[in-house]
Amino acid sequence: MDEFRGNYKYNMLDQHVREFNRLVPVYYQWDDHEVTNNWYPGEMLLGDDRYTEKSASLLAARANRAFREMLPITEHASEPGRVYRKVSYGPSLDIFFLDMRTYRGTNDANNSPSPTDNTDFLGRAQMEWLKRGLLNSKATWKVIAADMPIGMIVYDDWKNKSTFENLANGDGAPAGRELEIVELLRFIKNAKINNTVWLTADVHYTAAHYYDPNKAHFQDFEPFWEFVSGPLHAGTFGPNDMDNTFGPQVKFTKHPTEDQGINLPPSYGLQFFGLVDIDADTEQFRVSLRDVADEELYTVTLDPVYS
């Protein structure tokens, strides 16, 4: 009976998700919690008694299969299970969905002064795919939908602040995983690719960041915006420390106050999402950060730049 009841619940959930997807167009990407917190390929969960299976890579393979069965995406011919892809919305918009999880190196001190296998975040194949896609895009706006923000510091070891989950590693010259972003931002500038906007998640609050080379340690890039929004149904906490390597300016942020504490439940109402609208006539790109009550918290309208 327990097995039947579990299968019944799963089937009902599956039915509801598929019905939702039929009515509302949704595009998905993944991060870490489809597998386990802060995982990376090759990680062994030897010190965590919650897991009988210790290989994060094996858990990731199972999670990838479940992800695609529940939320189907078009399979890639040469790499079954690939999550990163491009979706086009007519002449105004191309969306590049990234995978910052599957091809990364180990979560370590993240301070190598030169590229190594361990400084990978997107990985070489995905990086070259993204550069080609941005270069060949005819859309006015190129949205980079990324798992994680660029300039927020996200520690893997929060207690000792010794290893990093994100690419940001503290103020100063680019190092570690930041070297991939240096390559990408320099490429976008040199190729004169206009109107790139980053939409990201992972952290448990909402924010708008403007990356200004005049405020940055590394300055060989054109300014751009990054909008962060999360979660939809999880504990809320923040804010994260910012890394000045790429000059992020915090234009807006909403998170629990010190008096409220951290990891607040959804009942507090600090759940967030973003709404993007591109005007059909002017092609202005309007971003609105909102809370669960659909209250507009912050809005900015970006004007397109034409070559």
Rank of each mutant, 00 (worst) to 15 (best):
residue 5 R to W: 04
residue 6 G to M: 13
residue 220 D to R: 10
residue 143 V to M: 12
residue 59 L to I: 12
residue 206 T to R: 15
residue 282 T to I: 06
residue 149 P to N: 04
residue 37 N to I: 09
residue 1 M to S: 15
residue 95 I to F: 09
residue 59 L to M: 13
residue 85 R to P: 03
residue 245 T to I: 02
residue 284 Q to A: 15
residue 11 N to E: 11
residue 214 N to E: 00
residue 273 F to Q: 10
residue 33 H to S: 04
residue 256 P to N: 03
residue 193 I to F: 06
residue 139 A to T: 10
residue 19 E to M: 14
residue 112 S to E: 15
residue 260 Q to W: 01
residue 287 V to R: 07
residue 302 L to A: 09
residue 219 Q to N: 10
residue 171 D to H: 04
residue 10 Y to F: 15
residue 229 S to M: 08
residue 306 Y to S: 14
residue 65 R to W: 14
residue 177 R to W: 10
residue 270 L to Q: 10
residue 89 Y to Q: 13
residue 234 A to R: 14
residue 50 R to I: 07
residue 82 R to Y: 06
residue 27 Y to R: 11
residue 36 T to M: 11
residue 88 S to E: 08
residue 139 A to M: 07
residue 271 Q to F: 09
residue 160 N to E: 11
residue 7 N to K: 15
residue 98 L to I: 08
residue 51 Y to T: 05
residue 128 E to M: 09
residue 33 H to W: 07
residue 252 F to A: 07
residue 193 I to K: 10
residue 212 D to Y: 01
residue 190 N to T: 05
residue 233 H to E: 13
residue 21 N to S: 14
residue 235 G to M: 06
residue 105 G to V: 08
residue 200 T to H: 04
residue 171 D to E: 04
residue 121 F to R: 09
residue 246 F to R: 00
residue 143 V to N: 05
residue 124 R to Y: 10
residue 271 Q to V: 03
residue 52 T to F: 06
